[in-house]
Amino acid sequence: MKELIERLGTKFPVNETVFQRDNLTFITTDKIHAIELITHLRDYEGFSHLVIITAVDWIEEGLFQLTYLLNNPKLKVDMGVRVMIDRKEATMTSSHHLWAAVATYQRELYEMFGIFFPGSPRIKEPFILEGWDGPPPYRRDFDTKKYAEDTYFPRPGRETHDPAEHMKEKMYPEGS
């Protein structure tokens, strides 16, 4: 694995490497070289299977982290390629030409996080939310509780307890 990272380092900017397990490594690259790097991994290094594309909302840093998780069926190793993109203008180069499934992942990311992939097929069609008109619901500045209370006629009289506090009171009522 280490040789592979070194080999990649000579061709592409690899910023940060996390050796998670023997068979799972995460590398971070920049937005411009990401698709090139993934194509290289697919065509020359045998990472022929795309497992998932997912995103993380780093709201404090103002960043979205995209993770392309690739699998090498021959060596049975996984490689996650992380790309940090700006949260304000969340746009990423589309990679739908690499795998057929990518277009669907990108549709989902556009719907849930509002990350736009120009040129990706059917990107603006609703994926699972029909007729959604609020902000993308997986963004962390979207308040689901407030939205649900405003929209879905909550039944009054509902109590919520913090599980830890509640169990402490129940089981040890005298001490705190």
């Binding site: 609020g134 689901t144 649900a148 006629f153 909550p154």
Partner: peptide, 10 residues
């Protein structure tokens, strides 16, 4: 799912 953005409450 009472505070979910996509499921009804009542």
């Amino acid at each position: 799912y009472w505070d979910s953005y996509n499921t009804i409450n009542r």
